[in-house]
Write a protein that binds this DNA or RNA. Structure first.
Lengths: 335, 335
DNA sequence: TTGTATGCGTTATCAT
DNA sequence: ATGATAACGCATACAA
């Protein structure tokens, strides 16, 4: 088996208490002894057993993740990259709690407690999806990604969705478009709502009246983008530009446009949201609102860490700026 | 705090030992008592503390992952989907050990031991990358993805790389191509070697002589694909088809072909490997050898589980079939 | 069939 | 400045 604290104590000729004190940075230990202990820690390659540590109420150094989507969700996967960096910096390990089943008997919160998870990251949920009460009441420091929960020790982080779309509208208006459609996400989605709001604001700024017929509700997928775009194309006053809630739906929209015998951006300009890898590879390359997933991931872990370390910290609320990436899917309004 | 075994014992009017026995399926406990205990377990929503459990030498139910690439690596991310399903079925949680730094003092193995990790999945390594000795000698059940390590309690899983490429060659030969280039991966990569071997076998089957000048070594990336393809295009006897070691390099190769004023598949046919999401979205859609990432991920966890549960099990060696997905990037050989 | 007692590896309290 | 020792929550050998 691996060496334990007693092995180290014996080797260094001190008590386990002293070794523990050295390891935990107590100042009440003689410099000479400290060095001696440290020496044997290194020699015996001693690493404290985390189960024992977390059992005595000390830190478990684990952060759990709670997802509706799989780990492979393209947007979440990108976020993971930022999380990794912060995990390395802070020393936490990330644990993915694979719920056995979604039945009523399973409680994610109890799973976390049984694992002594110190903090939780939540992704992919909407307000009505489930009760967060249990999670909030548990008092486990929690960070929601893309959902505005701010209560107890739970805060959230999200892109500046509204501003992002607003600037996309301004850009497309600058290209002389007036008939600008909006391919929205699911109606009750938090980020979807903000993006729609950004669209309305953008129109108002350009003195373009808002028309319900120009907004279609999809679900962020390519298939929905395709179908909703087909409907938009059938409108008497066909839009000359469409702003989409996700790159995937933008790709679907471009397919629909092409299948209708029209061209992007010749007949219709298209803007996406996210800037997933695919965006730069489609034809034409997609102009899109880039989410800074790296920063989102990094800040997520940092904020959870802050929440963990400061009992009294008010729930954070972090908004990460977006950036309009101009590629080839937009052009001047036709005629 | 969360309820513990003593709370349950008290409530049910039995000793903690009895509760423990019920929870661990001992048959030496009266049916009536068992039921009574179970009742209170449910009522108090008791879930055993995993730290305490793993401390007493029982299972920790955690599997660790060890990566050179990030969690977001597109291929690995796809594998995660399969892993998730198997994790739910087997009840393990997945832990990502974020190494603080890659210095000599850090040992992944000791990290695993301190966490009582029961099994490990390794991805992204090559033989010469590092010592696996420590990991092998630790005796922790381990599964390597895409690296043929088979020693002690460590086995591996991989696609049938050789057969996959062999069939790609047969397909392109069937389109009357004779000048078939191979855009290989890094020279010393395990899967790269097998794919190159498949290429040679495929040529032999078609009585096409193997020529070193037709194989270029990249590193699976788009950039390398672009550069190596440029070199292949400069050959006196320009190839009419190129088989690539990855979809990303195939995308790069297509870019190079287009930039040279040639067309895919008019002048040159292109085949990729992996079938990442991008493959079906590029223009023309990429014909490629699909890896069954879902099965790879699922089997990975299943095999680790088997290894954990059977002390004497010989190291597994799993080869997962591939499938040629025909899209639009191949055509008959010109002239 | 049930309960008592011990130990897992660590931290923390209290003596010394 | 250092060392016994009692927890932490659970499983198990052994006693009853």
């Amino acid at each position: 088996m691996a060496t334990n604290i007693r092995d180290v104590a014996k080797a260094a000729g001190v008590s386990v208490a002293t070794v523990s004190k050295v390891l935990n940075g107590y100042t009440t230990v003689n410099a000479k002894t400290r060095e001696r202990v440290l020496e044997f820690v290194k020699e015996l390659q001693f690493q404290p057993n985390s189960a024992a540590r977390s059992l005595v109420g000390r830190r478990s150094m684990t952060i759990g993740i709670f997802l509706t989507t799989g780990l492979a969700h393209p947007f979440f996967a990108q976020i993971l990259t930022g999380m990794e960096q912060a995990l390395k910096a802070t020393g936490y390990d990330l644990i993915y709690l694979a719920q056995l089943s979604w039945n009523k008997d399973y409680s994610f919160v109890r799973h976390c407690q049984s694992r002594n998870v110190e903090g939780v990251v939540v992704f992919g949920f909407q307000h009505e999806d489930m009760d967060f009460e249990e999670l909030i009441e548990s008092g486990i420091p929690t960070l929601f990604i893309d959902l505005d929960v701010k209560e107890g020790r739970a805060g959230y982080i999200s892109s500046d969705n509204q501003e992002g779309i607003k600037r996309a509208v301004a850009y497309i208006v600058g290209l002389n478009h007036r008939r600008i459609a909006f391919l929205s996400g699911t109606k009750n989605s938090y980020v979807g709502g903000l993006r729609l709001e950004g669209y309305r604001e953008g129109l108002k700024l350009a003195d373009i009246p808002y028309s319900e017929s120009y907004v279609a509700y999809g679900d962020f997928t390519k298939e929905a983008g395709y179908e909703r775009m087909k409907e938009l194309l059938a409108l008497p006053e066909r839009p000359t530009a469409v702003i989409c809630c996700s790159d995937m739906s933008a790709v679907g929209a471009m397919d629909a446009i092409r299948h209708a015998g029209l061209s992007v951006p010749g007949d219709i300009s298209v803007i996406g949201f996210d800037d997933i890898e695919l965006a730069s590879h489609v034809n034409p390359p997609l102009t899109t609102v880039r989410q800074d997933t790296f920063t989102i991931g990094k800040r997520t872990i940092e904020l959870v860490d802050e929440l963990i370390n400061d009992e009294g910290l008010p729930p954070p609320e972090a908004i990460v700026p977006t950036e309009l990436v101009i590629r080839g899917s937009c052009g001047p309004a036709p005629e």
